[in-house]
Simulated assay, not measured.
Amino acid sequence: MGLLGKKFPAPVARPMAPFYVAGLVILYGVNSFANTLASTDEYKNDPRNPGAKSVPNGGH
C-alpha cells in the first residue's frame, strides 16, 4: 500500500472542465478590467502603477 492509500479510477479533470474554463474566463476578465483601470488618467502616473512610465533614480 502506498503512502496515499488505494487509488480509485475516478474521473477528475473531465467533470471539472467547466469550472476550469470558467475560472480562466473570470481571471481574464479581472485582468483586463484591472489593466483598463490602471490606464485611466487618475492612475496613469501613480508610482504604485506597475505600468507607469517612471524614471529610475540612478540607483540599482
Score class of each variant (00 low, 15 high):
residue 25 V to P: 04
residue 51 G to P: 00
residue 56 P to N: 12
residue 47 P to I: 06
residue 18 P to F: 00
residue 16 M to I: 01
residue 49 N to S: 09
residue 58 G to A: 08
residue 23 G to T: 05
residue 42 E to W: 09
residue 15 P to A: 02
residue 56 P to V: 06
residue 23 G to N: 11
residue 17 A to N: 10
residue 3 L to C: 03
residue 52 A to W: 06
residue 47 P to G: 12
residue 51 G to N: 14
residue 26 I to Y: 03
residue 51 G to Q: 09
residue 41 D to G: 14
residue 11 P to K: 04
residue 54 S to V: 14
residue 20 Y to K: 07
residue 20 Y to Q: 04
residue 60 H to W: 06
residue 35 N to E: 10
residue 9 P to N: 15
residue 43 Y to F: 13
residue 34 A to P: 06
residue 20 Y to N: 03
residue 29 G to D: 05
residue 52 A to M: 06
residue 2 G to L: 01
residue 51 G to A: 11
residue 33 F to N: 04
residue 38 A to F: 06
residue 48 R to S: 12
residue 19 F to M: 00
residue 58 G to P: 02
residue 48 R to F: 13
residue 11 P to I: 01
residue 38 A to N: 04
residue 43 Y to K: 10
residue 37 L to C: 07
residue 15 P to Y: 07
residue 15 P to Q: 09
residue 25 V to A: 14
residue 16 M to Q: 07
residue 56 P to G: 06
residue 56 P to S: 14
residue 17 A to H: 11
residue 18 P to G: 00
residue 44 K to M: 05
residue 19 F to T: 00
residue 12 V to H: 06
residue 50 P to L: 02
residue 23 G to I: 06
residue 58 G to N: 12
residue 37 L to E: 07
residue 46 D to V: 00
residue 3 L to P: 00
residue 28 Y to F: 15
residue 24 L to V: 07
residue 35 N to Q: 12
residue 23 G to H: 05
residue 59 G to H: 07
residue 39 S to W: 06
residue 24 L to Y: 07
residue 58 G to M: 01
residue 59 G to W: 03
residue 6 K to D: 13
residue 39 S to L: 02
residue 8 F to Q: 04
residue 11 P to C: 00
residue 12 V to P: 07
residue 43 Y to S: 02
residue 31 N to K: 15
residue 52 A to S: 15
residue 19 F to A: 01
residue 41 D to M: 01
residue 58 G to H: 13
residue 29 G to A: 11
residue 8 F to G: 00
residue 35 N to T: 11
residue 11 P to G: 08
